[in-house]
Amino acid sequence: MEAADPFQFVCDQLGEHVKLDRLALRGAVRLALKSAGFEPRGVRPSEMAVVVSRMLPKELTACGVVDPGPLCTRLAAAVSGLSASAAPDAPDAVFRRLGG
């Protein structure tokens, strides 16, 4: 399984299923990530899956997408199947290690 950028993956998949312009879609995903305490860069697939299932529906609804729940559930399952890339140490990983 190849490593992919979870943010890009979700934006691409949403673009295929939702009739919103690219900028609005990416903005919705960014807002969902921000409200969950993440940035597009460095988010892991497992974390993205939770953000997509729990936070993204609200953002998509705000953009006028009707009933985004089922789509987000499918998308969350797909993104959680991505393999995590070998990203450099995120602060949370560093601070976890510092605990011993």
Partner: peptide, 16 residues
Amino acid sequence: GRMRKRRVLGLADPVV
């Protein structure tokens, strides 16, 4: 602040 938001979703360890 970011870790607190993650914790609400169960994505952050409370000790970290």
